[in-house]
């Protein structure tokens, strides 16, 4: 008499265990990778004093507790600026539900960029709240802030045309965390990832 062939229960149990352990391994390994990929702290921003488009003073204190994406602009710019401005608008829309993520555009052409001109420019970009501010101040102050604060070159001879196209990510403590090319979609994806991670640091 032939015995009934036994069901491969051991193999089945092991395969189920393998699937469960694979899930655990995926979670643990990705958590470990995430914990290692902290964005470095580059420089502490000094205090500064500029004015936003509605005439209110804007300094470092208005960046504390928030994640800020900072760029340098001038409203008459023809070169790469329209591309950068439209990329910035996309981000501004993307983060519309998050008050603690703000956009800061600093004019390098204060002579033409009056408060009135900045207000018009803001409307042109579709700005309807205070998550995106446009700043102006004496050119010397802006140049000093760019060079000494943001560590980005700003040559008075070539301004405003020669302004930087680099975006700076500033954290909740007013520290520079990363630089990005505002015309490069791949680099903007990195910026979004960094914003996600910074957001986790805040929570």
């Amino acid at each position: 008499m032939r015995n009934r062939k036994p069901f491969p229960i051991l193999l089945i149990v092991i395969i189920i265990a393998l699937i469960l352990l694979a899930a655990v391994a995926i979670i643990v390994v990705s958590r470990a990778d995430l914990s290692r990929s902290k964005i470095p702290v580059l420089y502490q921003l000094p205090d500064f004093e500029l004015t936003d488009q509605s005439g209110q003073p804007f300094g470092l204190s208005r960046m504390l507790g928030k994640i800020s994406i900072v760029d340098f602009i001038f409203t008459n710019c023809k070169g790469p600026c329209p591309i950068m401005a439209s990329k910035m608008s996309e981000l501004y829309l993307l983060y519309k539900d998050y008050d603690h993520i703000q956009f800061v555009s600093i004019s390098v052409d204060p002579e033409r960029d009056t408060l009135e001109a900045l207000r018009e420019y803001a409307i042109l970009q579709g700005v309807n709240d205070d998550r995106w501010v446009f700043l102006r101040g004496p050119l010397d102050d802006v140049v000093r802030l760019s060079e000494q604060g943001f560590k980005l070159a700003a040559d008075v001879e070539t301004l405003p045309m020669g302004h930087t196209i680099v975006w700076t990510l500033v954290d909740q403590d007013g520290r520079i965390r990363s630089y990005h090319n505002g015309t490069d979609d791949a680099d903007i994806d990195v910026l979004k990832e960094n914003i996600r991670r910074l957001n986790r640091e805040i929570r």
Binding site: K5, P6, P8, I9, L10, L11
Partner: peptide, 22 residues
Amino acid sequence: VIKDSRDFSSIAIQCAWALAGL
């Protein structure tokens, strides 16, 4: 082992399945 399972204890058959599968 699995084909001729009449002659083998069930632990041996479980092992054979697991060895081949793994």
